[in-house]
Design a protein around this nucleic acid. Structure first.
Lengths: 74, 74
DNA sequence: GTGCATTTGTTCGTATGTATA
DNA sequence: TTATACATACGAACAAATGCA
């Protein structure tokens, strides 16, 4: 398929976070909510949150720092 | 069936790992590569890897420890 | 220096849905 | 219909890195 299925949970989470980063809801350098917070907010599992965040990292939107958190790049 | 079909993917993975254990590539007590590593190495799905490894466990070649890994017995 | 809490990393367990032969 | 195989998704446990009191 050419386009990712928008109903895939990790895609939903990823898109929501990417949109908020694009909107400037989080300034560059700020920390994203942690995995537990995202789990609560999106009502998904940790693995789903992790997949979404790792996709954002692969897209260059965030940087993940183990033990510290995930930070917005731009 | 008396003999497993060698073209079944899980049998291929199972046989490869069993051969490597028999060859001593992994000493007893060492940890096998995790499921994700085997997925990448054999280019199969997680369920296929899991089936292969569980067959090895049923044969007494490995011991599976959830949250830790899979370890060679002999 | 020690211990604890927080956060991300890793690994296996399980269930479900889809596609294929 | 059954068996294989893949992907998604949830959960649990263990582990490592970090920061702070």
């Amino acid at each position: 398929m050419a386009f990712p299925n928008p109903y895939l949970r990790y895609s939903v989470v990823e898109a929501a976070l990417a949109a908020e980063i694009g909107d400037g809801r989080w300034a560059p350098g700020t920390r994203l909510p942690g995995e537990n917070a995202l789990i609560g907010r999106f009502r998904v599992s940790r693995s789903t949150v992790r997949r979404a965040v790792q996709n954002l990292a692969a897209r260059g939107l965030v940087e993940i720092h183990p033990g510290k958190g995930t930070f917005v790049i731009r």
